[in-house]
């Protein structure tokens, strides 16, 4: 369906997408994951013919984005990061306009509009001016305009951004309903929000694909990178000595958080976690808290992004936590 071959995109001297290559099969639902500025939106804009690549080739169903944008536009529905809605129009008027732009008219337009209303649960606001709708509803109207003409390829840029938890669940359900009918590409910087939505996830970092795989595959990679966080009462040197007695503990990092409070981060296999706890307790130190740091796909993406940023290629099996990475991570969280 889509072939992206060694594509780069520069905004002036700034490189947004670097030597990107991937393929997407018809009927797939693919998620693009990355931080703001990772190149997700640029990639989606290139695929929707809004922008042209600086170098490389992109083809959609064998059509080239540079030479046949008009033909490709007939195949796609696109929701940008802010829904492209005219506030003074009602939902019905707006969808009619979007449908007519895509060549629909008469009974066909009525039928398609009805279908879009049902898919996006918009019936009750059909006559409301868009200016009176909440962000969640505007987002749905944005999706409705993207699907009204039944496009083969649906491109959704941050469809979940700014929605509340209830709306997120609904949005996931809506995207689930669209699967199968369309090839779907969507982007997000908060992966947990699209869990169980995509067949495949491409993790982007600095304009490149840092990792890809199914949700499970990425989760499995995370497991290898999972770290354990401890809050220990005691002197720093004693904590260090106690942990040194556990050979399974790797990448140990200690941080004095108070006179008798040490914050510990380390990597350890699940089976050896008990040994860590025992070593602390046996040394006469107080173990106040012990937990696995995050989980979920969010962390996979964070770690893979860090990894890609630091060394591309080759991917490393384990990433030692260094102050610079810790700082990067804290910036991400803020």
């Amino acid at each position: 369906m889509i072939v992206v071959d060694k594509v780069s995109k520069y905004y002036g001297a700034h490189r947004a997408v670097a030597d990107l290559s991937f393929e997407i099969r018809a009927g797939e639902c693919v998620g693009f994951l990355g931080l703001n500025g990772a190149g997700k939106s640029t990639t989606l804009r290139l695929l929707s013919c809004l922008l042209l690549p600086t170098s490389g080739r992109i083809s959609v169903r064998g059509l080239d984005v540079v030479s046949s944008p008009h033909e490709i536009r007939k195949l796609i529905g696109y929701l940008p990061d802010t829904p492209p809605v005219y506030l003074e129009m009602t939902v019905t008027e707006y969808l009619d306009f979007a449908g007519r732009l895509r060549g629909l008219s008469g009974a066909e337009l009525d039928k398609r509009r009805q279908r879009a209303f049902e898919l996006c649960s918009l019936q009750q606001v059909a006559r409301a001016p868009i200016s009176e709708l909440s962000h969640g509803y505007r987002q749905r109207v944005g999706i409705a305009q993207a699907v009204i003409h039944g496009p083969a390829l649906l491109i959704l840029d941050e469809p979940i951004q700014g929605l509340d938890p209830v709306q997120i669940v609904e949005m996931r359900r809506m995207i689930g309903n669209l699967r199968g009918e369309h090839t779907i590409l969507l982007s997000t910087h908060i992966l947990t929000e699209i869990e169980a939505t995509c067949d495949r996830i491409l993790v982007m970092h600095e304009g490149k694909i840092a990792a890809q795989g199914t949700e499970e595959e990425l989760a499995a990679r995370l497991k290898a990178h999972r770290s354990l966080v401890l809050e220990v009462r005691g002197a720093l040197e004693r904590v260090r000595a106690a942990l040194a007695s556990v050979p399974a503990a790797r990448d140990v990092q200690l941080q004095q958080r108070g006179p008798e409070h040490v914050h510990v981060t380390l990597r350890v296999d699940d089976a050896a976690r008990e040994q860590v706890a025992a070593a602390i307790v046996n040394a006469g130190l107080g173990l106040h808290a012990m937990q696995t740091q995050s989980g979920g796909l969010e962390a996979v993406f964070l770690q893979l992004s860090e990894q890609a940023g630091r060394s591309l290629p080759p991917p490393q099996a384990a990433v030692p936590i260094t102050p610079s990475v810790a700082r990067d991570a804290s910036q991400v969280q803020s």
């Binding site: 013919c49 033909e71 536009r73 696109y78 492209p84 005219y86 979007a98 732009l101 895509r102 305009q145």
Partner: peptide, 14 residues
């Protein structure tokens, strides 16, 4: 500014 131009530019309109 409002972002609606994108709708026109991604539609099959010259």
């Amino acid at each position: 500014q409002s972002g609606t131009l994108v709708l026109l530019f991604t539609s099959p309109v010259r």
